[in-house]
């Protein structure tokens, strides 16, 4: 391998690792929050209404994640702007 392909391999593997870790944390949090919300009293199997609840809860959690992420990034940029104005 030459320098360029070593670099590209390192970048690719690093991105894969962080993206996997990020997805894993997201899934863990979705499971925790949506299980609590959709399966208050666990029965002998998941009912169809529990399953529907889990699916929509998951979609909602992802939408919430995106909203929080956008607000957080906007706020950080604002703080950086305030700092450089001082």
């Amino acid at each position: 391998m030459d320098s360029d392909s070593v670099k590209k391999t390192i970048i690719k593997q690093a991105l894969q690792a962080t993206n996997t870790a990020n997805a894993r944390t997201l899934i863990e949090n979705i499971n925790e929050k949506c299980f609590e919300r959709c399966v208050p009293k666990p029965g002998s199997s998941l009912s169809s209404s529990e399953q529907t609840c889990l699916t929509s809860c998951m979609e909602k959690y992802m939408a919430a994640w995106n909203e929080v992420n956008a607000t957080y990034i906007r706020r950080i940029q604002q703080e950086i702007g305030n700092q450089s104005n001082m």
């Binding site: 929050k33 909602k60 957080y72």
Partner: peptide, 29 residues
């Protein structure tokens, strides 16, 4: 990027409890 993502995970978890009621419908916000 990682730091922002992990802070986003934490904030989403905190704010989910405050903003999303058990009765609210699924899907979009």
């Amino acid at each position: 990027r990682s730091r922002i993502q992990s802070q986003t995970h934490e904030l989403t978890s905190i704010c989910w409890k405050k903003c999303i009621t058990p009765r609210s419908g699924g899907g979009a916000l």
